[in-house]
Design a protein around this nucleic acid. Sequence first.
RNA 1: CGGGGAGUGGCGCAGCUUGGCAGCGCGCCUGCUUUGGGAGCAGGAGGCCGGGGGUUCAAAUCCCCCCUCCCCGACCA
Length: 519
Amino acid sequence: MPTTPAPASTTSASSKKSDSTANWWRISAVTGQMRHRLAGRSALRSRLMAKAPVLTPQADDFPRWYQDVVAKAELADNGPVRGTMVIRPYGYALWERMQAEVDQRIKAAGAQNAYFPLFIPESYLTREAEHVEGFSPELAVVTVAGGKELEEPIVVRPTSETVIGEFMAKWTQSYRDLPLLLNQWANVVRWELRPRVFLRTSEFLWQEGHTAHTTQADAAEYARKIAHEVYEDFMVNVLALPVVVGYKTARERFPGAINTITCEAMMGDGKALQNGTSHELGQNFARAFGIEYLDDGGVQQTAWTTSWGVSTRMVGGLIMGHGDDAGLKVPPRLAPIQCVVLAVRDDDAVVDRCRALAAELREADVRVELDVRVEVSMGRRATDWELKGVPLRLELGPRDLADESVMMVRRISGTKSAVPLSGITGTVGDALEQQQSELLQGASERRESRTIDCSSIDEVIEAASTGWARIGWEALGKQEGEARLAESAISVRCLNRPDGSLPVAEDEAELVAICARAY
RNA sequence: CGGGGAGUGGCGCAGCUUGGCAGCGCGCCUGCUUUGGGAGCAGGAGGCCGGGGGUUCAAAUCCCCCCUCCCCGACCA
């Protein structure tokens, strides 16, 4: 049924009445035949023709829905230079929460924060052949500064392996200096041909970890530790996004790495998003930058390095992984605003009680927002918080006040119920945790139901039109099969063991390839 | 770079075929009435119609050149 937004002139006061809570705006779709039948029954008619949807429905046009969410939830704007973005306060609050959670886990994994420069001598990039080849098309290079032509061009960092390698070499003399575990929060620049806010912009924010170890085994173990204990743990337990942790194929891995571990998540349209990566760099960068040390026998050795990162792309993953036609759905553990307290009416007693309620929740460490903008209509405010994906709304009006209760609306499940004001902090805490698990469960179920076991390339292509395909790496035909899938814009997202776990080596027998279209 | 679209108040669009006062919806401002799911009414503010050249009494509209943006591919966190 085509969606026909009704002209505003046909709406009336009664249009705000609705018997459906979560999906009332969908009622705007009315066929010509229905309109004809309804002519004259004005109350019903105006109710059915209520309002145009707030967002383009996902089913109509998913990319458009995504852009609508970014705009209406006030997450970001496009910057003046093509491919750049302005992250607005609410979008940045989401990122800050991601940073806080990831940073805590990085530190628990033993790494320390530091900062390296934005500008990198061009000659550094060229020291590692695969690295420079992989990045040169995306580099922004400064050739003029201070009013004159530079003797050596300066590259705006696309990633910092090279500068950090240079300094790791300087700081590493003895095996006692290793492992060297560093991380930095920074912006990086990779000139993009087809930018999309949060998913692919020419400048983005990220965290890049860089470590050096005495043995290959130590480096490998650390790269896996980061993938599981930092990234997977954060994505599953905070973002509520189930991820498959696997190895990238040679075609998809980081330039200069000997292997890449990826965390792949399924988006609402069945496409895949690489949400974070952890690389073993072997001795490629250590050799290029001279990261060497004397071992306990006094012999000069070359170190083994890793690097790993997650970026503001995860905000895109959050939007597309959980959002629905009403907007964003933010998992409670991540949410910068977990609960909003709304005064339903312009009434001093109501407003005062709302303030007290918000204070009580804040006291109990709930991240709470008070909304007493009584000059703005109730429906409008409800819609706005829904767009922003705030997990819980507590709506308090005179009727609730009278029987010492409050209307609790859950964004994740879409349910609404009156709960007693006494013991509200416990009720809210329970509801938040419950919604956290519901969100993860919903995302997991969607991924399961949209992942299909395949045994031929044709089946993979079919499956990838709606979700993910699983096929034996051998059965796919390894690199040859991968190249054939590429012709249909399908990639091997990662290689896993048949039980879905991360292999120990990339050349294990019986690996399974997860294939999908990707962002 | 190849293929397809579009540039008109902050956002979304109509107007162009057939030249003739620059419009509509949302948003914004003021006032009143409202307030339990995007409020109503009244009154306002806001535009080098992407840029340059041409045709014409007259160009958003017709002609030529240029620029930009969006969508689909190759690259990518």
